[in-house]
Simulated scan of single mutants.
Amino acid sequence: MSTQRTVALGAYRNLLKAQKQTFGADVVALNAARAKTYVEFNNSKNETDPNVIEEKITLANQVASILRSNIVQGVRKEEEVDTDIYKLKFHPGIELGDNDSIRNSKGSHRKSKKQKASGGCCGGH
């Protein structure tokens, strides 16, 4: 078995494990995620370009990482059938941030109002 094939199978298993951890007992979501994963990997099984294969393996591992660290599932509370009250199911490894980190980075990727008004960094004025 080739090294790239072994790495691809590892990425496939990694993604399936991340899906199981994230979606747990939600059979509908788990089956949908597994079906999508199967289709995507199956569609690429005859790929021969090593660069494309490497990109797809990297993408699969990134998706698994996001599932493990950034996705939580909400489950409707049984006793609250008539309302939309959900309980979040956190699993080990979930990344918990705070609003301060979002506020501090909020403007770092945006142009300031002054730059927008004057035409930006390369402005026409």
Score class of each variant (00 low, 15 high):
residue 25 A to D: 11
residue 48 T to L: 15
residue 86 Y to H: 12
residue 19 Q to G: 13
residue 116 K to D: 14
residue 99 N to V: 13
residue 78 E to K: 14
residue 120 G to N: 11
residue 78 E to Y: 11
residue 80 E to W: 03
residue 101 S to W: 04
residue 30 L to H: 05
residue 89 K to E: 13
residue 56 K to N: 04
residue 14 N to P: 00
residue 17 K to C: 02
residue 102 I to G: 02
residue 66 I to E: 12
residue 123 G to N: 06
residue 45 K to Q: 14
residue 23 F to A: 12
residue 35 A to L: 12
residue 112 S to N: 01
residue 87 K to M: 10
residue 50 P to W: 00
residue 8 A to M: 13
residue 21 Q to E: 12
residue 26 D to W: 04
residue 15 L to D: 05
residue 15 L to M: 11
residue 55 E to M: 06
residue 110 R to W: 02
residue 59 L to F: 10
residue 1 M to H: 12
residue 47 E to I: 15
residue 57 I to E: 05
residue 61 N to L: 01
residue 116 K to F: 15
residue 55 E to R: 10
residue 115 Q to D: 14
residue 33 A to Q: 00
residue 113 K to L: 12
residue 74 G to Q: 06
residue 19 Q to V: 07
residue 39 V to C: 03
residue 11 A to W: 02
residue 97 G to N: 14
residue 104 N to V: 07
residue 58 T to N: 10
residue 11 A to Q: 00
residue 57 I to C: 08
residue 44 S to W: 03
residue 77 K to Q: 15
residue 59 L to G: 09
residue 88 L to C: 09
residue 123 G to P: 07
residue 68 R to K: 08
residue 71 I to M: 06
residue 121 C to D: 13
residue 90 F to I: 14
residue 102 I to D: 04
residue 38 Y to T: 15
residue 39 V to L: 07
residue 51 N to C: 00
residue 37 T to S: 15
residue 68 R to C: 07
residue 81 V to H: 12
residue 105 S to Q: 11
residue 19 Q to Y: 06
residue 25 A to F: 07
residue 99 N to K: 09
residue 11 A to I: 04
residue 42 N to W: 04
residue 22 T to L: 02
residue 69 S to C: 05
residue 45 K to A: 14
residue 72 V to P: 09
residue 45 K to F: 06
residue 62 Q to S: 08
residue 102 I to P: 01
residue 72 V to T: 15
residue 13 R to W: 09
residue 95 E to W: 11
residue 88 L to K: 14
residue 25 A to H: 09
residue 76 R to N: 09
residue 59 L to K: 14
residue 94 I to G: 05
residue 57 I to D: 02
residue 50 P to V: 04
residue 74 G to P: 01
residue 92 P to F: 01
residue 14 N to H: 02
residue 123 G to L: 08
residue 33 A to M: 00
residue 70 N to I: 02
residue 64 A to V: 05
residue 6 T to M: 06
